[in-house]
Structures are given as C-alpha cells and as structure tokens.
Write a protein that binds this DNA or RNA. Structure first.
Lengths: 201, 201
DNA sequence: CTCTGGATAGAGCGTTCGTTTTAGTGATTA
DNA sequence: TAATCACTAAAACGAACGCTCTATCCAGAG
C-alpha cells in the first residue's frame, strides 16, 4: 500500500472539510472516501471526529501555505507576487469546479461558538499565512508595521475573494482582488525599490 | 402579538444560519428559537428547511445591506466611508462576542456543491453589496470600470477580514482592512476630488 | 509453533435529523 | 348555527448521525 491508512484518512478528511464543512462531513463518509473502515478511523484518532478534523485542518493549512509560498516566490516584485497568488487561487478554484476553496473557512465558521481545538488550528493556519506574505514584503524592503498590516489585509482580501468567486462561479473576484492588491502594494513603493511609508501608519 | 409568527421564524433562522451555518442549524431549533412550533414552520414554508433558509438569507442580506448603506452615507469621502464600514463591522462583531459575522458566508460555503436556491440567494446578496459600494464610488466621481473592480475588492476584503476577525477574536483584521482599503481608494484620487484612472485599468 | 498487539472490519447503540401526519384551535363567513 | 379557513400542536416515521463494542486479521517476537 502506497500511503498509510492514517494519511489517507487525513487527506480525505481535509478535502471533505474543505468542501462540506465540519458539520456537513460525517465520520463514515471520511472512512469511505479514505478507503478505510470506521474502526481504523477510531483506532488512529481516539478523539473521534474532532481529532480527525484538527489533523485535517492542519494538513490543509500547510497545503495552502505551500501554494502561497510558491506563488510568492514566483515573482520578485511584491505586487506581482501578490497578483500571482490570486491567479493561482483562481486557477485551482476553476479547475475544481468552484468547490475547492479555502481549506478551513467553512469549518472555522461552523465551530465559532464552540471552544474546540478546531478553532485554534484555524487561527494558527491563518497566522502562518499572514507571516508568509509579511516575510515576502519584509524581504522587499517594507517596514515591519506596514508589512504586517498589508499582509493581513492581503490574506483577508484573497480569502474573501475566493468565497465570492465560489459563489459567483467566476474568476473575476479573484482577478479583481489580485489587481487591486497589486496596486495597493505598489502605493508603498518608489521607483528605486526602496520602501516609503504610508501616510496612515 | 407584536411580530407575526412567520417573521419570527425568518429572523430566528437568519440568526442561527449566521452563527451555525445551514447544516448545523436544525428546523426544530429554528422553531424553538422563534417560539413557534414545527407545524407552523411547515405551514409557512412548505418547502421545508431549504425554503426557510432562502428566506432567512434574503433577510440577512438586506440587513447587511442596510448596515453597509448607513456606513457609506456616514462619510462623504469615499475612503473614509469604506473605513467606516470596516469600523461598523468590527463594532458589531465585538459586541456579539465574535459570533455574528457575515450572515451568509457559512451557509454559502456549505451548499456550494449543491444547486439549491440558497446559492442563488447568496450570490444575489453579494452582488447587491457590490452595487452599494460601486454606487458610492460612482457618486464620488470614479469611472465605471474602476468603481466596479474596486467595489468587488472592497466587499471581498471586508468579507475576508470579518472571517479572520472572528477566528482571531480581534478587531485588528477589520481595522487593518479598513485602513488599507482607504489607502487603496485614495490612490485613485487627486486633491480636487476629481477621479483619475489607475494605470492598470 | 504459539503468543502478542497493532490494525482492520462491521454490527449495533442511542440520539437527532428533516419530514409527514393527524388532530385541534379560534376567528370569520354564510 | 354551521362551515370554512389559517394556524397551532404534537406524535411518529425512516434515515443518518457519532460512537462503542466485539471479532478478526496478520506480521514479528519468543
């Protein structure tokens, strides 16, 4: 067997959580999709559904981070790098038939009221994505404060644009966000590549 | 009786959908929250759970539009108006204990695969919000194309920032988005208030 | 070989789901 | 008075839920 049963469970759970959310995904469905049995699931995850979800969200969060990292590294210019992120998201979204969006938004929103570990895993993933963008901006000469605020806004906008793209079944929201975010990033730059401060920092 | 049973059902359903999503909200829970009986729910909504959800999402979408309209009208300057939207969302979110976010994101994501009317209602609401922002920008002298692309990005960013704020239990993502979006809007303006075009339009 | 323990397999537990069904209420109309 | 109507009320259906339980498999240690 190529991949371990445990890994297949995590991967299948991540995909299902991404598409159907936490409440909408059943343990039995995860087992079936992973070509595992219910017994195996509870063997590897004695914590039950929530434990599977936490592992799946961590996995999905790292997957998304990898996509983000590659897109950010594909362009030297930070504005173009952000645009590349949007384009990459748009492409994957379209190819999946508009169903594979952010791997954790649905699960995060459903478990907001609760104090489950799922919340913590989602928060951690979001923070790591912010960090990736922020680091890119810092490498491009942005000041710490500007980079952080810009990065969190970029992630927010990509996140929201992806939801809109899914609902609209159209790449347009992501394309628009990519262009506008690039413009926003450029508003911090001067021709020399040396950063300047915004007037609202 | 002050409010009609039907209205109470819609309002209760809207609140529950906002907090728990579509799958996470039961018909019986809606009935209980609305102080109605199951029979009443099926009397007013023969279409069952989905019909209730559609009505609730339309209601929530209009509520959100009202909030947006008021915030946009509270400031003449478009950049400040967008910032006001973010501040208003942050305030309501904090006051609700970080649980009353966007009224339809959760439900929209959960029903993505399906072809239910819920999708359509969500798409319509999102479009109407875009329109509100776009109209404000047009009134401030923006060109049609710029206004549309900027508006959809603003809604995307606010949407995403609200999700991040909920997960982080912090106003910061919304505040950052408000400031950065204001900066983006200002990048289109010259001192006279007459619009100029972006170089990427 | 036997023994052991991780891994697999699936029946079945109690509960809740969305929905249907039937009965009953009270005000309006003929 | 009798009939009709919108509405309320609650019992009960089959299906699916998360989870527990017991039984089985099988590679490696003694």
């Amino acid at each position: 067997m190529q991949t371990s049963t445990r890994d297949r469970i995590v991967v299948a759970a991540a995909r299902l959580l991404q598409r159907q959310g936490y409440v909408g995904t059943g343990i039995k469905q995860i087992a079936q999709e992973a070509q595992a049995t219910l017994g195996s699931v509870y063997h590897f995850f004695p914590g039950g559904k929530e434990a599977v979800a936490v592992a799946a969200i961590k996995h999905g969060g790292e997957d998304f981070a990898t996509l983000l990292r590659k897109a950010l590294e594909s362009e030297e210019d930070p504005a173009e790098a952000v645009n590349a992120c949007a384009r990459q998201l748009a492409e994957e979204l379209r190819e999946s038939g508009w169903i594979d969006g952010c791997p954790l938004t649905a699960a995060a929103l459903e478990t907001l009221g609760t104090d489950s570990e799922i919340q913590q895993a989602c928060a951690e993933a979001l923070r790591s994505w912010d960090q990736l963008v922020s680091d890119k901006l810092l490498r491009c000469g942005f000041r710490t404060q500007s980079a952080r605020e810009l990065a969190t806004t970029i992630i927010s906008a990509l996140e929201g644009a992806e939801v809109k793209a899914q609902v609209d079944r159209s790449e347009e929201p992501l394309q628009a966000a990519g262009r506008q975010l690039a413009r926003l990033v450029r508003s911090y730059e001067v021709g020399t590549g040396v950063s300047v401060d915004g007037d609202d920092v």
